[in-house]
């Protein structure tokens, strides 16, 4: 006999603890608040932090969207969606505008988020100073003392080695001018979307047992030097081969046989929306 799971998987005590933590995280933007990360039915480091936030927030009337590297249909996204829907019965969507809770791994949707939406990001490594210092009690002290020379040094070393800041993802940011935070492994392209965002952004690291947040309308500044300013990935002269969009984050796809390079929108639901719009226009124009 299968017993029915409790609403949103967790017992109420667990939800309360996560809720208290998330509230503190909102009150101290960018600060990693420790919490008692629960054992989840997915592996730690694969979105358990985000999943725990989603489950503590979600109610029966919510509409959930989960994306993994920009895609709605990849394994991580589908498994998380299935678990949440199985335990709560909420409706699931792929349309960014229709969702009010968006859990994401490694991307912020291309479409600008609204005030009534909450973005939840899954974070594998929440500590921007971990590469500088392996001991947690020392990185905690560095945050306490506002000592971010280590984070600056990491960027400086990249400039020395490669002539530019070479962060592929999780380029560190200053939140509200106080805490340095990893924005989760989003590409640099998405960092500016966090600045003065209309939606609340919650970040959860399940394996590392940390929850942190960026409230809406909060300053988020990517770390950069005066002579080496912050720059997002450039896709100049490139466009999506399916929908033709420019000014979006593109995936490079190399044909294994011919070696030919092509580009495609990383945010699949955005791409489909553009295609549908185009099709509608075509149909309207061809009607005589």
């Amino acid at each position: 006999m299968m017993t029915k799971p409790h609403f949103a998987f967790f017992d109420e005590g667990s939800k309360k603890e996560i809720r208290r933590t998330a509230l503190k995280a909102v009150a101290i933007p960018g600060y990693q608040v420790p919490f008692a990360s629960r054992e989840m039915p997915i592996a730690r480091g694969w979105g358990t932090g985000g999943l725990q936030l989603t489950l503590s927030l979600i109610g029966r009337s919510d509409v959930l969207k989960v994306i993994d590297q920009g895609a709605d249909e990849s394994v991580n996204a589908v498994s998380i969606k299935k678990l949440v829907q199985h335990t709560t019965g909420v409706s699931i969507t792929e349309d960014t505008a229709a969702a009010n809770i968006i859990q994401s791994r490694h991307r912020i949707p291309e479409k600008e988020l609204r005030e009534d939406q909450i973005l939840i990001l899954q974070v594998p490594n929440p500590e921007p100073l971990r590469k500088v210092e392996a001991r947690e009690y020392l990185t905690k002290r560095m945050h306490a003392e506002d000592d971010y020379s280590g984070a600056w040094l990491l960027l400086f070393e990249q400039i020395m080695k490669y002539g530019r800041m070479s962060t592929g993802a999780e380029h560190p940011v200053y939140v509200n001018g106080r805490y340095v935070m990893t924005p989760s492994p989003i590409p640099r392209f998405d960092n500016p979307k966090m600045h003065q965002s209309k939606a609340l952004i919650l970040l959860g690291a399940g394996r590392e047992k940390k929850i942190f947040a960026v409230p809406p309308y909060t300053d988020v500044k990517s770390m950069a030097f005066d002579d080496y300013p912050f720059a997002v990935e450039s896709f100049e002269g490139k466009s999506c081969k399916l929908c033709g969009s420019t000014d979006v984050f593109l995936d490079e796809i190399i044909d294994p046989d011919t070696g030919e390079r092509s580009y495609q929108c990383n945010d699949t639901s955005f791409c489909i929306e553009q295609l549908n719009k185009k099709e509608k226009e075509e149909v309207e124009n061809s009607y005589v």
Binding site: E12, L23, V26, A27, G59, L200, P215, P216, Y217
Partner: peptide
């Protein structure tokens, strides 16, 4: 205790973040 308090929490979270 489950659904109503979830609503209360969401409202307070909304107000705390704004």
């Amino acid at each position: 205790q489950i659904h109503d308090l979830q609503q209360v929490y969401r409202n307070i979270l909304h107000s705390m973040s704004r």
